[in-house]
Write a protein that binds this DNA or RNA. Structure first.
Lengths: 225, 225
DNA sequence: AGAGCACAATTGTGATCACAAATTAGATCG
DNA sequence: CGATCTAATTTGTGATCACAATTGTGCTCT
C-alpha cells in the first residue's frame, strides 16, 4: 500500500469524511486493483487519524459496494465477475442517458466548453498513453455533464456503479493501452449543442456500450491472474 | 421513538449488523416518517449495544441515502421533495423491469406460487385497510421476484431506492387508505406464466407508474405539514 | 522435501471516555 | 406577553483500549 494518499484535503472536514474522500478518489482514479486488501490500521495511519473514523469511511465505501468486507472481517477491493460487470454496465446504460437528457435543457455554452476541455485533455492522455490521466479525464467528462442534471438521487446511483467498475477499468485500459477508442464524447457534444435529446442518449449509450465491450474482451484474460 | 425495534434478530451476528437490519426493516415497513430524528445513544440503548456499532449502522444507512446526516451532525429521515421523488420513481421504472426480465428465464412454478401468495396477502391487507401489512406484502412481492434475477449489483441499486421512497409511501398510502388501486401484480404474474418478457416489463412499469402517480397526487398535500 | 501443527503477530469489533458543538430550557429584560 | 441572552443538557466525533478471531510463520515429524 503506497503512500501519497492525500493530495489536497481540507483540514476542517471531519476525519471520517477526509478518509472517505481520499479512499474514494483513489479508487476512482484507478489507484486500487481488484483483490487489493486494506487494513483499518493501515488506512488510519496513512491519513493520520484513529481507527474509528477509518472504520466509518471503509464501511461507507462498503455500503456503496466500492469495498467489500468479508464475513471474517477482511477489507478488500471487490473483483466483479463477468456477470456482475454486465449488471453494472447495464445499469449505466439505463441510468446515464437519463441523467444526460435531464442535463440537456440546462446546458449552456459554458458547460459545453468545460466538457470540450475534458475531452481535449482526454485525447491528449490517450495520445501520451497516460492511462491514469485518461481515466481521470473520462470521469471528469461524465461527472461534469451529469452534475448539470441536478438529480442527486440518480447521481448517487450512478456514482456507486462507477466506484464498482473503476478498479476493473483501470486494468482494462492498462491492457489495451487506450488503443483505437471511438470518441463518442464528440457525438455527445454535438447532440448537446444541437439540443438533440435522442442523439445525446444514443451517444451515451454507445460510450457505455464501448466500455462494456472492452471489459468483455479483456475479462477472459483477467480470470487467470 | 417507540420500542419494539427488534422483531427477530440473530444473536450471533455482529452488533453493527443487527442494528443495521433493525433500522432498515423499520424504515422499509414504514415505521419512520420523513423528518423523524434519531440519536446514536437512542438507537444504541434501544438495541442494547454501545454507540460505536450504532454509529456504523446509521452511517451505512446514510450512505444508502436511507438516512441523512446534516452538517451539524443530526440524524434524520430524509424528506424528498417532488423533484427527488420523480428521480426515484424514474430510477425504479428504468431498473426494475430489467430485474424482472432477468428473473423471467429462471422462473418456475414455485416462484409463481410464492408471488401469488404475496399478492393474495396484499389483497387481504387492502381489504382490511391494513396499511403496514400492505407495504410489507408489496415489498415481499417485488423483492421475491427480483431476487430470482440473481443480480446483486442491480438489486443493491433498487434496494437503495426503495429505502428512500419507503417513508413517503407509508404516508401516501395512509392518506389514500389503499383505495382503488389497480393490481398490476396480476398482470405481472400472467406475463411471468406466459414467459412474455415485454408484457412483464410493462406490468412492472405500470406498477411503478401508479406509485409515482399516487405520490404526485399526494405530494402537494404533504408540503404543508 | 512437504504436510501438519503450535505459537506469535495481525486485525476487526465493540465499549468507554473526554471533548466540542449544537440544541434546548429558563430566566431576564423590554 | 414575547423576544433574547445565557446556562445546562444533549449529541456527534474521535481516541484509546481490551478482546477474540483470523492469519501468517516457523518448526517438527514423517
Amino acid at each position: 500500500m503506497p503512500a501519497a494518499l492525500q493530495p489536497k484535503i481540507d483540514e476542517t472536514l471531519p476525519a471520517h469524511e477526509r478518509v472517505y474522500r481520499a479512499l474514494r478518489a483513489r479508487i476512482l482514479s484507478g489507484g486500487m486493483a481488484p483483490g487489493d486488501s486494506l487494513t483499518l490500521r493501515g488506512v488510519a495511519e496513512a491519513l493520520d487519524v484513529s481507527m474509528t473514523p477509518a472504520r466509518e469511511a471503509v464501511r461507507r465505501l462498503a455500503a456503496e459496494r466500492a469495498l467489500e468486507m468479508t464475513p471474517s472481517g477482511r477489507i478488500l477491493v471487490p473483483t466483479p465477475g463477468p456477470a456482475q460487470l454486465d449488471e453494472l454496465f447495464r445499469a449505466r446504460a439505463l441510468l446515464e442517458p437519463e441523467l444526460a437528457i435531464r442535463a440537456l435543457p440546462k446546458t449552456d455554452s459554458r458547460l459545453i466548453d468545460a466538457l470540450r476541455h475534458c475531452d481535449d485533455a482526454l485525447g491528449r492522455h490517450v495520445a501520451a498513453g497516460d492511462v491514469a490521466g485518461y481515466v481521470r479525464a473520462n470521469n471528469a467528462f461524465h461527472t461534469t455533464l451529469y452534475a448539470r442534471a441536478g438529480a442527486p438521487a440518480l447521481m448517487a446511483l450512478v456514482e456507486s456503479v462507477w466506484l464498482q467498475t473503476a478498479p476493473v477499468m483501470r486494468r482494462v485500459y492498462g491492457r489495451l493501452g487506450t488503443q483505437a477508442l471511438t470518441d463518442y464524447h464528440e457525438a455527445a457534444l454535438e447532440a448537446l449543442a444541437a439540443r438533440n435529446a435522442e442523439a445525446l442518449a444514443q451517444a451515451i449509450r454507445d460510450d457505455v456500450g464501448q466500455g462494456a465491450a472492452l471489459v468483455a474482451q479483456v475479462s477472459l484474460d483477467l480470470v487467470d491472474l
